[in-house]
Amino acid sequence: MSRSGRLLSLMEILRTRRRAVTAAQLAAELVVSERTIYRDVAELMAQGVPVEGGAGVGYVLKPGHFLPPLMFAREELEAIVLGLRYVDQRGDDVLRNASAAALAKIAAVLPPHAGPTLDVPLAMPGPPAASFPDNVVELSRLRAAIRAQRRLEIVYADAAGRSSRRVVWPVQIGFMDSARVLAAWCELRESFRTFRTDRILAATEGTRYPGRRAELMRGLHEHLALSVRGQTADKN
């Protein structure tokens, strides 16, 4: 591997790690000596790349540093295009516009030989849903509550049209094939629940819920994983 290629690989490793990575770990991944890692890190710092750390402590890339798309491998770019096409099919207006803007930005900085990856990609998403039910409460309001970690008092209608009031801690919005759902901790059920957004008839933002959303998200995903395993066991 050339030095320039190794520097790009080094930045990519640091970009994907949230915690400091030691020179020994980096050397093992790149199959070089630790001395080479020290020299390469010094070169990155000299070029203005915001790498923090040192020998014996490890290195970390400061948050916010962006690697331009032209550094993506071909398969990585295929994955990005597939994801953006999926968002264009199933996302709401906000995400569809964001998807188009992101794709345009990527196309603007790609080298000419990468153009076919955008124009004639190898992968494609499945057929789009016919339509999604309209929402009474805009998804932007749900997003705002998620970001602010605020409780929501919602009026929710079940499949039979019966309505009830719930106080929930919103965690994520799910985009399914035929509906969108709000995943949240429900104070009434004392458990994680999903609510179809088109059945949320009203939503009032309340006080900040305790803890961190990242912790709730981990709990939600564990809950969903257990549910899937339970359904699989029932089928067996």
Rank of each mutant, 00 (worst) to 15 (best):
A101G: 02
A101H: 01
A101L: 02
A102F: 10
A104S: 13
I106P: 09
I106L: 11
I106H: 12
A107M: 05
A107I: 07
V109L: 13
P112R: 02
H113Y: 13
H113N: 12
A114T: 04
P116M: 07
V120L: 14
P125D: 05
P125G: 05
P128R: 01
A129H: 14
A130S: 06
F132D: 06
P133R: 01
V137L: 11
R141C: 10
I146S: 01
R147K: 14
R147P: 00
A148S: 08
Q149E: 14
R150M: 12
R151L: 14
E153I: 12
I154E: 06
Y156P: 08
A157Q: 12
A157I: 04
A157N: 08
D158V: 07
A160Q: 07
G161D: 04
G161R: 01
G161Q: 02
S163I: 04
S163A: 09
R165Y: 14
R166D: 05
R166Y: 11
V167G: 13
W169K: 01
W169L: 01
P170V: 04
V171D: 10
Q172R: 02
G174D: 12
G174K: 05
M176G: 10
S178N: 15
R180T: 08
R180V: 08
L182H: 00
L182M: 03
A183Q: 03
A183N: 04
W185R: 00
E187G: 07
E187R: 08
E187P: 00
L188P: 00
R189T: 03
T194R: 08
F195S: 00
F195N: 03
F195Y: 12
